[in-house]
Nucleic acid binder design. Structure first.
Length: 435
RNA sequence: GGAGAGGUCGCCUAGUGGCCGAGGGCGCCGCACUGGAAAUGCGGUAUGGGGCAACCCAUCGAGGGUUCGAAUCCCUCCCUCUCCGCCA
């Protein structure tokens, strides 16, 4: 996760402005440029001395081969020369390492500049770019009097399909247990999402490990940025994945991909584990914010000139699912201050939940451009034989299960306590839950 | 978990202290030959950093060490394979 030093050299102004728009410190850019100069200077000098040392060593070999005594004065002098060079190289190496380390650290703190079409500002500057469906009212007058739509945890409890108490006993608060039709609903949703993405959107399904090593966690920026968010298995130096983005993006870490293989588009189901430290309280009731949830995630590797269009496409792929489920939703283009440090452009999909009277974020679709791929050294070759370039990565939820389940329960609830099953799931679940 | 073998340039492989950033074969890309192709011949074919360039530097799983000099010797770790044990 970092901005390229090349870009800083060539277009520092855009990076500076981007930092300001995201509310970060723009002076880091200038300090980084200074360090870059320092590093290159020392590196150049060290390389020159190293070349000389190499030549000296070769002369020792040649002299011995030509008959000089290995312990003789000629060889001894060359050795002394080599040792002296070594000391000077060592000193320069320290300068290089120090500058490089500081530079890397600085680069990690410079945010990815937002795309030009991203609105500048805080949360209030984010814009709803479109919406679909009619949000159901929380209360409405009906033939049998006033009807109030209940929150999903009440609906679920009555149907006996989500057992938070059992989950809490087994693991702790925030680890839901789904039972009966609730469990089947999870399975049906996962299946439905994966089927649409593989069969209709042409993505390749992968089923990755749900723990990752340190290198992978670092690759997608979970370390050091979001370390507190992850569950760690210290004994084996493994992390439980907070999203499939981590293992799936790392599939191509340190690879060079030939142009004819792009784009590469994956879809993966995984459970996701998040500590959500400090999040207890607001909007955490029911299954809206939990430590373990299920998600189908889409991850794309794209040619740089195609990533803009790919973001729109990915967003549409996620939207399709909500439409077919018949859930009213809206698409929000996140403003500079409201999106992450690492994204260039991001859409959030929010689904309407009439029971809690709120829009629930069920998907977040982001274009990282080259920011994420750079740290992982994921490159592509524009032409056969050409120099490799950093490619672009994107990802998006398609979709996050827990909140979709909440929305289905709240939107589909009937006065008799049953829940209407969305059409695409009926073949698997029947027309109603309960009732 | 125990014992053994091994990780070299896309693939296979040579290489036990200097002549090795690294040979050979395959693959791939040019060129020649051909009506076209096959076969054959010639040349090219890693990544990163620096330099206008010539070119220089680094990298032989990773990290340390020995040495004037390490793919080659030593140490630690990772991974793969085989056998044994265990097991959904």
């Amino acid at each position: 996760m970092s901005v390229g030093i090349q870009r800083l050299r060539e277009d520092a102004e855009t990076v500076r402005r981007g930092a300001i728009a995201k509310g970060e410190d723009p002076t880091l850019v200038d300090r980084a440029i200074a360090l870059d100069v320092e590093r290159r200077d020392a590196q150049g000098k060290a390389d020159a001395l190293r070349a000389e040392k190499k030549a000296t060593s070769e002369r020792i070999g040649a002299a011995i081969k030509a008959g000089a005594a290995p312990g003789g004065p000629e060889v001894a002098e060359l050795r002394a020369r080599s040792v002296e060079l070594d000391a000077r190289i060592g000193a320069l190496d320290v300068t290089v390492d120090t500058a490089a380390t500081e530079l890397d650290d600085l680069l990690l703190r410079i945010p990815n500049p937002p795309d030009p079409d991203v609105p500048v500002g805080g949360e209030e500057a984010s814009v709803i770019v479109r919406s679909w469906g009619d949000p159901l009212p929380h209360t409405e007058e009906g033939p049998g009097g006033v009807r109030i739509r209940r929150p999903h945890w009440e609906v679920a409890e009555e149907l006996g399909i989500i057992d938070l108490a059992a989950g809490a006993k087994i693991a702790g608060s925030g680890f839901p247990l789904y039972r009966g039709a609730g469990a089947a609903l999870q399975r049906a949703l996962i299946d439905f999402f994966l089927d649409v993405h593989t069969r209709e959107n042409g993505m390749t399904e992968v089923w990755p490990p749900v723990v990752v090593n340190t290198a992978s966690a670092r690759g997608t920026g979970q370390i050091p940025d979001k370390e507190d968010q992850m569950y760690v298995i210290t004994r084996d130096e493994l992390y439980l994945v907070p999203t499939a983005e981590v293992p799936v993006t790392n599939i191509h870490r340190d690879e060079i991909i030939e142009a004819d293989r792009l784009p590469i588009r994956y879809v993966a189901y995984t459970p996701c584990f998040r500590r959500e430290a400090g999040a207890a309280g607001a909007r955490t009731r029911g299954i809206l914010r939990v430590h373990q949830f299920d998600k189908v995630e889409m991850v794309c590797f794209e040619r740089p000139d195609a990533s803009g269009a790919a973001l729109e496409w990915l967003t549409a792929c996620a939207e399709t699912l909500l439409r077919r489920l018949g859930l009213a939703y809206r698409v929000k283009l996140m403003a500079t201050g409201d999106m992450g440090f690492t994204q260039a452009k991001k859409y959030d999909l929010e689904v309407w939940a009439p029971g809690v009277e709120d829009w629930l974020e069920v998907s977040s679709v982001s274009n990282f451009r080259d920011y994420q791929a750079r740290r992982m050294a994921i490159r592509w070759r524009p032409e056969p034989g050409a120099r490799p370039e950093i490619l672009h990565t994107l990802n998006g939820s398609g979709l996050a299960l827990a909140r979709v389940v909440a929305a289905i329960l709240e939107n589909g609830q009937q006065p008799d306590g049953s829940v209407v099953v969305p059409e695409p799931l009926r073949a698997r679940l029947g027309a109603r839950l309960g009732g």
